[in-house]
Structures are given as structure tokens and as C-alpha cells.
């Protein structure tokens, strides 16, 4: 039980945004773990010069 709770808490921390940016702000986020199919992109700085469409979604 305790282990499950700890894992869930860890997942929340891992998924939490570190940048409190909104419309008008610059994004300079660096990924802690490279995204699937990132192909060497470590963060938004690597994408400067092209637009980025961020799609927040869920599998459930």
C-alpha cells in the first residue's frame, strides 16, 4: 500500500510541469528523459527556429 502510494506520488512529481509559462512567455524546457522519438532533441532550445505544436492528451 505504502509502496503504491509512493510510486503514485513519484509519478505525479515526474509529470509535473517545471515551467509556469503561459501565452506570451518563452519556453526553455529541457526534458529530464528524452521523449520517445526525440531523435536527439533534448529540449525546446533545440527546436528554436521552427514552430512546435504541443498536444496534451490522455490514453484513458
Amino acid at each position: 500500500m505504502l509502496r503504491t502510494f509512493a510510486l503514485a506520488a513519484l509519478a505525479c512529481v515526474a509529470a509535473a510541469p517545471t515551467a509556469l509559462a503561459g501565452v506570451g512567455d518563452k519556453v526553455d524546457y529541457k526534458f529530464r528523459q528524452a521523449p520517445v522519438n526525440a531523435m536527439g532533441v533534448a529540449g525546446f532550445a533545440d527546436l528554436r527556429g521552427k514552430p512546435v505544436l504541443v498536444d496534451f492528451w490522455g490514453t484513458r
Binding site: A14, A15, A16, P17, A19, L20, A21, G22, D25, V27, Y29, F31, R32, Q33, P35, V36, N37, A38, M39, V41, F44, V54, F56
Partner: peptide, 9 residues
């Protein structure tokens, strides 16, 4: 690309 890390809120 796919991630679970939110780059911003």
C-alpha cells in the same frame, strides 16, 4: 515525439 513531461502548465 512523445513524453509525459509537461513543458509548461
Amino acid at each position: 515525439m512523445w513524453t509525459e513531461e509537461r513543458p509548461f502548465q
